[in-house]
């Protein structure tokens, strides 16, 4: 039995341990669950060491770029969160992280998610590309009216009554279709992963094991 086949057996048993949760919470599932947490934490520790710490801290410091002592000090302050008496020291590191997130997100979200999406919504209500195009015209109208109505639904500064209420209701309809489509898409993605696991169990584990036992 090769090392790869031992790996297949371990993977198959762990797969079955996790699927056993479908019956009810049990020791096999709990073992796999805790093991998964441990493996994941250990994986990311090694991953960050090789892909972040070495190129972004150790190499610059070896090359005498001493400004990289700043993130080292800020990072160490974060670890003070483990000591309740000195946890206030961690604010420096967190302040830097939060500021980076806020500064980058301010621009990225404003540019990519707000401006570009608004820009993409400003469409001709009558499409005349290569002559009158009815299908594209209907689609454009749906996009312009739908996005506007959806945004009206998220406007909570005035009560949703009268015209505002009707528009908000139209917005809800579009949002519901969108949620339904996203739900259907997610279900299909999960089913696809499930089929992948079943194929693994049958093709990579059961069939080769039977072949090994029968000697063929």
């Amino acid at each position: 039995m090769s090392i790869d086949f031992i790996g297949v057996w371990i993977a198959a048993l762990l797969t079955l341990f996790i699927f056993s949760f479908l019956y009810k919470d049990n020791p096999f599932y709990k073992f796999a669950e805790y093991l998964y947490v441990g493996i994941s934490a250990g994986y990311f520790a090694a991953y960050y060491y090789h892909n972040v710490m070495v190129p972004n801290l150790f190499v610059p410091l070896q090359n005498h770029q001493f400004d990289y002592l700043i993130p080292l000090v800020l990072g160490i302050t974060i670890l003070f969160r483990l000591f309740p008496k000195y946890s206030w020291v961690s604010r420096y590191g967190f302040a830097y992280s939060v500021a980076m997130g806020a500064g980058i997100n301010f621009i990225v979200y404003l540019q990519a998610n707000a401006m570009q999406q608004i820009n993409a919504t400003i469409l001709p209500l009558i499409s005349l590309e290569g002559g009158f195009n009815l299908g594209q015209t209907i689609s454009n109208i749906i996009i312009v009216i739908g996005v506007s109505a959806g945004l009206v639904y998220f406007y909570f500064s005035k009560p949703h009554k009268g015209f505002l209420g009707s528009t908000a209701r139209l917005g809800i309809w579009f949002l519901m279709i969108s949620f339904g489509a996203s739900f259907g898409y997610t279900v299909m993605a999960r089913i696809s992963i499930l089929i992948g696991r079943m194929q693994f169990l049958i093709n990579d584990w059961i069939k080769p094991t039977i072949a090994l036992i029968s000697g063929s």
Partner: peptide, 30 residues
Amino acid sequence: WIMTYPNTVGQRAIMIGAALGVVATSLRII
């Protein structure tokens, strides 16, 4: 068609609304 148009419409409305929220929160943090 549903994924391309009505779904895009809903997602886009959510994205614009969320983006404005992120921008406001980022400003409040800064």
